[in-house]
Design a binder for these strands. Structure first.
Lengths: 215, 215
DNA sequence: CATGTTAGATACGGACACGTATCTAATTCT
DNA sequence: AGAATTAGATACGTGTCCGTATCTAACATG
């Protein structure tokens, strides 16, 4: 609980300088993500966010009507915008790069935890589910291996008939499951293994290397 | 909130017949799962479980010290025990059957929702994570495609070198991701597609059928 | 029937969060 | 400097939940 008494930048004292506008919103966004990562969405409170952001509840209620509103807006604003930049002659490398992008962006400790918490809550909340997918995922794009696969299909390197919703999902599904089962992010070797053992075979590019496996 | 005022079997009135022992525990277990599925683990309360089970809080506190304890025990008790029964000459059929078993057991609306909620909470709670895996998953076994794949490898139908942690995870990972992205369970066609488009290629059994796709 | 065991009902003090209202203080702009 | 805007502080009544304590009622057993 001690952490709850601290503001986003570690100050435990009352500030005389007041943050305004965008600066304040940024601090509140960050506090909302931190609070969610730490306590889950079910225990997310306006008081907790306010306390952590070092601001008054009134500042929150002036802009948002619920904690979830803050979180969705924060997820949107902080969505990693870097996208795969596939070339034309290194399918394997580009797939690996895409999954690393996913790991290093979406699956980071805070962002990933919040995303997981919201997805879980979204099971019970069609409204939240819809907002997450339309306002965050679809609005921000962010498809990883899918982008690479489509690109290489356009360049005639993959049979387009192999590109199905299942195949698009393989890499990301395996990354997510690893994150759930383990208590850490997939390492480079695991990402290599996903590409070599699952994605490449699925698109008809049998691999020549021995399986790397989980280390 | 009206539902919270009802007991597990729909009775809204005070009962004169008292449930004792195992019967009472079963009702409490069921109430705990229902409450979790409905409100999430973060908002799960002893009062809510008691109210839903139509019993007194004292009956809960006599046995358990926290709501999570009840849920873990309930997950253990209600874990679907049916396991894949692979034959020897229908790898595809057995893989499909295994995934259907997963869908119809673990992914059912209540059980699946609770499992998801606990997994999400387990991100923040190493103790809970450990208990879930050791007390529920490991204690109950329940590996789906893995069981089938190992079986067929023992019968010489699959090259054992192809069986890696990644390959074991493919089917279940895709099932889980579908469940998260969509608001429904994977249908038979999707399960067929997982087996044909992802699992079989991964173990070197290229399929002859056209991709089924998501319908 | 008497006794022992278990279930249920309820009170209690304390903690926490909600959402609103009100007022003061700080900052920006003219 | 004064006015307008925004941020911060705090009070408030209400509701929910916690965990404990206490007591009565129901049930099982000898």
């Amino acid at each position: 609980m001690t952490d709850r008494n601290r503001t986003a930048d570690g100050e435990a004292q009352r500030r005389t300088r007041r943050r305004r506008g965008a600066e304040l919103v940024a601090a509140i966004h960050e506090a909302a993500l931190d609070e969610t990562a730490e306590h889950g969405l079910g225990r997310l409170t306006m008081e907790g966010i306010a306390r952590r952001a070092g601001t008054a509840k009134t500042s929150l209620y002036r802009r948002w009507s619920s904690p979830e509103d803050i979180v969705i807006e924060a997820l949107y604003r902080m969505y990693p915008m870097e996208e795969p930049s596939p070339g034309a002659d290194d399918l394997r490398g580009d797939l690996i790069a895409a999954l690393k992008l996913m790991r290093d962006g979406l699956m980071q400790p805070i962002y990933g935890a919040v995303m997981g918490a919201v997805l879980e809550e979204a099971r019970r909340r069609p409204d939240l589910h819809k907002r997450l997918y339309s306002d965050v995922f679809d609005a921000r794009g962010g498809r990883f291996t899918r982008t690479v696969l489509l690109h290489y299909a356009e360049h005639g390197r993959i049979d387009p008939a192999r590109l199905t919703p299942v195949v698009f999902d393989i890499g990301e599904a395996l990354m997510l499951k690893y994150g759930v089962d383990m208590f850490e992010l997939p390492d480079d070797a695991y990402i290599d293994a996903i590409v070599d053992q699952a994605i490449l075979p699925a698109i008809g590019h049998g691999h020549e290397n021995p399986p790397s496996g989980r280390t």
